[in-house]
Computed example of a mutant assay.
Amino acid sequence: MQNPVTVIQSVRLDDENDTLVVLNQTVLPNETNFLELRELEDIWDAIYQLKVRGAPAIGIAAAYGAYLGAKKSIAETYEALFEDFKKVKDYLATSRPTAVNLFWALNRMENRFKQEAGKSVAEVKAALKEESEAIRAEDEKICEAIGEHALSLLEPGWGLLTHCNAGTIATAKYGTALAPIYLGQEKGYNFKVYADETRPLLQGARLTAWELQQAGVDVTLICDNMASIVMKEGKIQAVLVGCDRVAANGDSANKIGTSGVAILAKHYNIPFYVCAPLSTIDLECKTGDDIQIELRPSEEITSKWYEKPMAPEAVQTYNPAFDVTDHSLITGIVTENGIAYAPYTESLPKMFKS
């Protein structure tokens, strides 16, 4: 029987109607609503407003957006079409600064465009469609491979802690950090999963808990500040998280709060694994200090989830969307080509050669 969650396509192309279709993650778990995006501004807004989120899903959406933008161009020459494509690409690149998949996917689309030099406008547009579809299809295989590698690190019946949402709706299928949970469920591992709520946007509460519950996984929702006690009580045997960017030294940027979970895991001697597609590994970025951290609006902290504001009016806020987990706190980085261990400056480049 198919898992009701892993069959969800959170990002897909409706080419016949020049439309990007995305699952609106901002209204989950109360509504399952798919948005039909036809204008480039709406695609940008969907990425910025987290209607589509998760590093792989952002990359897929950006690739489709780049294709649709080029498709709508009335340019009659390769050169003129490239000018229009570059405007689309540069615009979409401004939507989120931290997730490297956004730039990876857009650069891959530009590289494919350049490979079609000398061909007709129609042929170039067809190639861009093919490339965007390939990005989505490859991500599905990548997530399954990450899941298999991560599952090899786990034992049946283990308690697992995860943070934010790195599941099916954040990718093409299976997810990254949730992939071993879904694959383990298919094999009868009977994991007991604890999901951090993930303040301030509650991706763990709204998305991960929803996904896993829908899939029939044994999942327990906890507040972020409860991670320490469940670890101390022996309920957690491993921590699995996704990531948005991995630096060459293994420092990993993920949703705010991840580094705190890693520090706790280190204290309680619990393995902490980062599940990272190769597309999120940025070997040009030397350390986590070089990763730009996105700052988001104060309303997400003070009033977004409340009938009335839960903070004094006009109080100063600091709302970074991500933090960086130091490589020294990471037990292993799970990629589609295997598991990298410290020293990451040596092991991560090898993952690209597997």
Score class of each variant (00 low, 15 high):
A145E: 13
K86H: 02
A205R: 11
G260R: 06
A253Q: 10
Q214S: 12
G159Q: 10
V334N: 11
Y64C: 05
N165Y: 04
W44L: 12
V324L: 10
I58M: 08
V193T: 01
D14K: 05
Q292R: 11
D251W: 05
S132E: 10
N165I: 01
L201D: 06
W305H: 15
A262S: 15
G234H: 09
V124M: 07
S73E: 09
V7F: 02
E144K: 15
A262G: 15
K308T: 14
G288H: 11
V219P: 08
Q2R: 12
L37F: 05
D84I: 00
M226R: 10
D282T: 00
T98A: 02
P180W: 07
E16T: 12
A126C: 04
F191Y: 13
E307S: 13
S298M: 02
E116Q: 15
F352L: 01
A63V: 01
G167Y: 01
S95H: 01
F34R: 02
Y306E: 07
L329H: 13
N24C: 03
R199K: 12
V230H: 06
A209Q: 08
E144M: 09
A105W: 09
T94E: 14
K266Y: 11
N3S: 14
T335D: 03
S228C: 10
H327C: 05
G159P: 01
K141L: 13
L35E: 14
E130T: 12
T198L: 09
V100H: 13
G288K: 12
V5Q: 05
R112M: 09
D244T: 00
I60F: 05
A117N: 09
N269T: 10
A70G: 14
A276G: 00
G257A: 10
T220Q: 12
L183W: 08
D18R: 13
G69I: 10
Q115W: 00
D90W: 04
N254G: 04
E76Q: 13
E31Y: 06
V315D: 08
E233N: 13
L283Q: 03
E211S: 04
I222C: 03
P4T: 07
V21C: 10
A150S: 13
T168W: 04
N225H: 13
L23S: 11
K255R: 09
G175D: 12
E140T: 06
T77I: 07
S279Y: 04
T302W: 06
K125F: 05
G260H: 13
Y189S: 07
K187A: 13
T331I: 04
W44A: 11
G250V: 00
N24G: 06
W158F: 14
L240Q: 02
L329A: 09
V193R: 03
S152L: 01
E211A: 04
V241T: 13
E155F: 01
T171S: 14
L264A: 11
E116W: 00
P349Y: 09
L20R: 04
M109F: 03
R38S: 12
N24Q: 11
R53M: 05
K173M: 09
N337T: 15
L106S: 11
I236E: 11
I293R: 07
K232E: 15
L295Q: 15
W104P: 00
T325W: 10
E83I: 14
C285K: 02
L50P: 07
T32I: 15
A126Q: 14
K71E: 14
T162Y: 06
P200M: 03
W210R: 02
G184Y: 10
E346Q: 14
D290R: 03
V22C: 10
Q185P: 06
D251Q: 07
T77K: 05
K350G: 00
K89R: 15
D42A: 15
E130R: 12
W158P: 02
